[in-house]
């Protein structure tokens, strides 16, 4: 799983300070190691009930999807009769920390691959079967299962010369005013963090707990589902699932959450 050239280019280097203000007051990274713009995980803004539910590995409803994912991992699929386990053996070992490095750049195609994309890449190229659609029970279960293998590990999305352009794009989207409400992500999730929006406390908007079981959804959903919901919230045109725009935003968010630990499957209101 190489990520191309390991060249140390700091995302800040070509940006003047006034163009985009730094997200958190930290110094720029000195090496290729991504210096985490450490923030607060969304769970710290949640109620005691939600925090307890996420922390309880049995009561957490998202664990039902993890359990299902474990079964799918071992079940052969496609004409070649290959299971995930046929190549990757024990996920508890082979998949540990993998999700924490996603999304990553697919250097061959120059596109961003999130964990859902990687799963479907495997399904198409290794298992020779059909890709799963976003929010299908199987894709959510597999995503939950894979991300669960990185639980407790720090997110480590690095920005280099190869994925820099996509990162810039994601950053621009994060800071772009849009929709009838003319709001950017940055307004709620950086400038108004901790303030109230009706009965919600605005969080920093990290994706480190995805896929999450959201009480509102009454099911598990992907980060893209939540992002689409945000686009809807500000009354902007909603990108399709898997759209380049959402992938670039996911990359930016992944970098932005680097250092926070993976909490999948998370629980939210």
């Amino acid at each position: 799983m190489s990520i191309g050239i390991w060249c140390a280019v700091t995302p800040w280097s070509s940006h003047s300070a006034e163009s985009i203000p730094p997200i958190f007051s930290i110094s720029p990274p000195a090496s290729s190691t991504p210096l985490a713009p450490l923030g607060r995980s969304g769970i710290t803004f949640a109620s005691p009930d939600i925090r307890q539910l996420q922390a309880d590995n049995f009561a957490n409803p998202g664990m039902l999807w993890v359990t299902r994912g474990e079964t799918i991992w071992r079940t052969p699929s496609g004409v070649k009769g290959q299971a995930c386990a046929s190549c990757h053996q024990d996920a508890q070992q082979s998949m540990q920390g993998v999700s924490a490095r996603y999304p990553r750049l697919d250097t061959g195609r120059g596109t961003i691959l999130n964990i859902e994309g990687q799963i479907n890449r495997c399904r198409q190229e290794q298992q020779a079967t059909t890709p799963w659609v976003y929010e299908s029970a199987d894709l959510l279960a597999m995503t939950a299962y894979l991300n669960y293998q990185s639980r407790g590990m720090p997110i480590a999305v690095t920005i280099d010369t190869d994925n820099r352009t996509q990162w810039e794009r994601g950053k621009a989207i994060f800071h772009r005013r849009q929709g009838q409400m003319n709001l950017a992500c940055v307004h709620c999730h950086e400038q108004l963090v901790g303030r109230k929006l009706l009965t919600d406390t605005l969080s920093e908007g990290h994706g480190n707990a995805y896929p999450i079981y959201r009480l509102e959804w009454q099911t598990v959903g992907s980060l893209q589902r939540r992002l689409r919901s945000c686009f809807n919230g500000v009354r902007a045109a909603i990108p399709d699932y898997g759209a380049e725009e959402l992938l670039a935003l996911e990359l930016y968010l992944g970098w932005r959450s680097s250092g926070l630990t993976v909490e999948a499957p998370g629980v939210r209101r």
Partner: peptide, 11 residues
């Protein structure tokens, strides 16, 4: 029962 600020209207 409290209400959410950002209700989802899309699927």
């Amino acid at each position: 029962v409290t209400e959410l600020a950002c209700l989802e209207e899309v699927r």
